[in-house]
Design a protein around this nucleic acid. Structure first.
Lengths: 189, 189, 189, 189
DNA sequence: TATGAATGAGCCTTCATTCAT
DNA sequence: CATGAATGAAGGCTCATTCAT
């Protein structure tokens, strides 16, 4: 019965997608610690469905952001090819990263939360975003455009922190401050 | 009975002080969301006493950090007098601010939390730290040491965010990133 | 299409058998209150299949133990023929019953649980094991080997209870206590 | 303010007592796994009050039965003095123990549950009832009234198990079976 | 004024049961 | 018939908050 199985799996995928979309929305509104029940209600499913698909909260958080993180990672090498100088690529990439973080600002808070259950997300970043950033930094260093002592991890973390916005500190401020931080990273002639 | 009134007031003050000291300690251990009961236990008082003195959690948080914020504020003008250049003063002050924020790391998270109940703390910063920072920035600008578009509020917020530390991003990293940010603020010759 | 019907029925029987085997195993590991899902997983079927074949948990429990109970029942008359005296037969039979109960220790607890849903199992025992035991007791009484006031039901129940084992009271203890109980049942000269 | 403190403590004691009484009643009705909420409702308190006084379910179970266990323990030495022979004392004590277990039949189930959280209760028995029983057994052995291989622990456990009653196996049956078991313990001349 | 026992809302998590495929 | 995704009731536990003393 491949048909009915396929139909059911497709339905399950749609449910999973609905949960992820609802979770993303609720995370923006309430942060990553939002009650599971709220997410279930927003998704129009029972809480059991969420627990079935994402046994822990961290699983859900990770799944919500995984695709976006992957996209961001891929952007790094693309910009490196397209840009006039490595540092320009770094700057553009940071800009894109800020857009990503600020739009999904729950992630910013999640990155800074230190929650041990979010180890997966942390790992995900270490495994994907940090190497992408490191590639850019190495290219900058090779082009003699980078000041000393800048590590990919600390830079990612710093950018992540600078993207925690609030009533009087918005996306434009975050972008400006990230740009300023990168300016400080640049080798002075 | 002026005596007994004075005695009672003195006792009340001591209680208030004990609560503040306990809260500061617990905030360091558990963050500003720590259970009220834990603070009460550490202070050796009943929870009711805390609610009497600090009706909301934000009141308590604000009171805990007020003195330290005032100290930090006063440091700005002092450094401005002592230092060779305004930018040096700014750098030193930022360093001191980082020490303050990282040591009392609950505050860093509090500043970035966007919690509407912490409006008081926000106001406190606007009213004290931001003007102090603005004074330093104005001195830098007057000495032609400052790049364009840096506002005191955004800078304070950025520094505050950079001080949200974690397992792999510690006080030294925060200091380094703040120094880098300030380097980026400096006018390029 | 007698063939396809036969095939389907054979398949259904195999499924039923797999569920019973899985349930027996899980009951040993986790007791008769084990989650239905665990049994379904062990059997390699969906939970719906279990509900179709055994609408209530008691139905499943009863089915699991029915065969073993029947075997135990048949043993009574066999031992009566083989043994030197009726009381010896009773003793041996009790020994076998203990082995059965302790090995499938979920049943011991089930018997003592008073769960109204297990009425079926209770009935099954009344209808099979108790008469078997009664036969043995009657033979003992006829041989003047039995003290007064021992009823088959109470004895079965007592033996069942004595077989509820635990960390510091194991199968050997249960056997010893059952033997002691039977010794107490014997007519004193 | 010794008065108001005393009043409050007295009130707290009364609450504690109400919880214990409610728990005892609910345990009889529903067993020791009854929902905490049910106990709270029966006691007329909030669930928090139960958790305050008895952080774990085992704490509550233990507290419910501790007094009765102590009473039963004390009875052993008293009967030993009063009775004509050690074995008579043992018999009488077992009788009293059955009364206790059957009346509070939740304990019977608790003893046989093997629940690791009830380690306290288990310990309580090992520390009090088992030694009391051991004293009786030793006296019997000294009077040459005891058959071989009977340990206090196994005997207590066996008696406990025999007291798990049900619809067709009541207190009288339990008493009879315990008496029979003890008869089996007696040295045959 | 200080106390802390009591309350109960709220969240987490499990699992029996249903039903569309 | 079999499947297993989905549901949601049920129960555990925590902690903010109140209020009688």
């Amino acid at each position: 019965m491949p048909d009915s199985v396929g139909v059911r799996q497709a339905q399950a995928q749609r449910t999973r997608g609905a949960v992820l979309a609802a979770a993303a929305a609720v995370f923006v509104d309430q942060g990553v610690q939002a009650p599971i029940r709220d997410i279930a209600e927003r998704a129009g499913v029972g809480v059991g469905t969420i627990y079935r698909n994402f046994p822990t909260r961290a699983d859900l958080v990770t799944a919500v952001y995984r695709h976006q993180i992957d996209t961001c990672t891929a952007l790094a090498s693309q910009l490196l090819e397209e840009s006039a100088s490595p540092f320009t690529a770094l700057t553009r990439w940071a800009d894109a990263f800020v857009d990503f973080l600020v739009t999904k600002h729950g992630l910013g808070a999640a990155l800074g939360s230190g929650d041990p259950g979010l180890e997966n997300l942390h790992t995900l970043m270490l495994d994907t975003l940090v190497p992408a950033c490191a590639t850019l930094l190495e290219a900058c260093a090779a082009a003699d455009e980078l000041g000393p002592g800048i590590t990919a991890y600390a830079l990612m973390r710093a950018i992540g922190n600078l993207c925690i916005t609030g009533p009087d500190y918005d996306q434009a401020d975050a972008k400006h401050m990230v740009a300023t931080l990168l300016a400080g990273c640049r080798r002075t002639a």
